[in-house]
């Protein structure tokens, strides 16, 4: 019986020591600074031959979820006009704000912007840049509007590491936005 009691005490003492190495995960919570997001997309239309610039943006500063997007502009353009179209991508969840456009440019052989108007007659896009493999990128280009009408402009950033072949098919979407497009 003496043995029993000794053993029981031993167990109890050991039990209490088992929690000595407890740790608090709250001390180690830190913001994520390595994963890049794209939180805003800005389309800059410059009417050719003029300095008239119209910009249209999508903004969701805290990324997916959390707060809803703060800005999703309607693109409004003149009919039968040629514009120079530049695109800018930012990660505004970081401080300082991270310029993703520059990073896309550096890795242009893995990226392709695709601009798809619907109906197709609303706008014709022509790529204005090429990567080292002579495939288009789409950071700059020209957009020629057709007759007046309403529709959408789908803006996609295709991420195609090791698979870029000039078509949108390979890879996956990093950006996929349907802007409302009004030509009037």
């Amino acid at each position: 019986m003496k043995m029993n009691r000794k053993l029981t005490w031993m167990l109890l003492a050991a039990m209490t020591t088992a929690f000595v190495q407890c740790k608090d995960s709250g001390d180690e919570v830190k913001p994520d600074d390595e994963n890049e997001l794209i939180t805003s997309v800005t389309l800059k239309f410059t009417e050719q031959g003029t300095s008239n610039v119209s910009t249209f943006s999508y903004k969701d500063a805290d990324g997916d979820g959390g707060n809803a997007p703060t800005k999703f502009d309607t693109i409004s353009l003149k009919p039968n006009t040629t514009y120079t179209l530049a695109i800018e991508l930012l990660d505004e969840s970081k401080s300082p704000v991270d310029d993703i456009t520059k990073e896309v440019e550096e890795e242009s052989d893995e990226h392709l912007f695709v601009y798809t108007p619907s109906p197709a007659a609303l706008l014709t896009y022509t790529y204005g840049d090429k990567d080292k493999n002579n495939y288009p990128i789409g950071l700059t280009g020209s957009a020629k509007t057709g007759a007046a009408g309403n529709g959408t402009l789908k803006v996609q950033l295709r991420h195609q590491p090791g698979a870029k072949n000039g078509t949108p098919t390979p890879g996956s979407d990093d950006v996929n936005l349907d802007f409302i497009l009004k030509v009037k």
Binding site: A18, E34, E103, V104, H159, P161
Partner: peptide, 28 residues
């Protein structure tokens, strides 16, 4: 699938997700 676009971060080749779970159990 995609590394970060930023070369210096990509060079670290860190996982995009890391979970470290420590569990201590005790049964009598």
């Amino acid at each position: 699938l995609h590394r970060p676009r930023n070369d210096s971060i990509a060079a670290l080749n860190h996982p995009e997700l890391t979970f470290k779970l420590t569990s201590l159990t005790n049964d009598v």
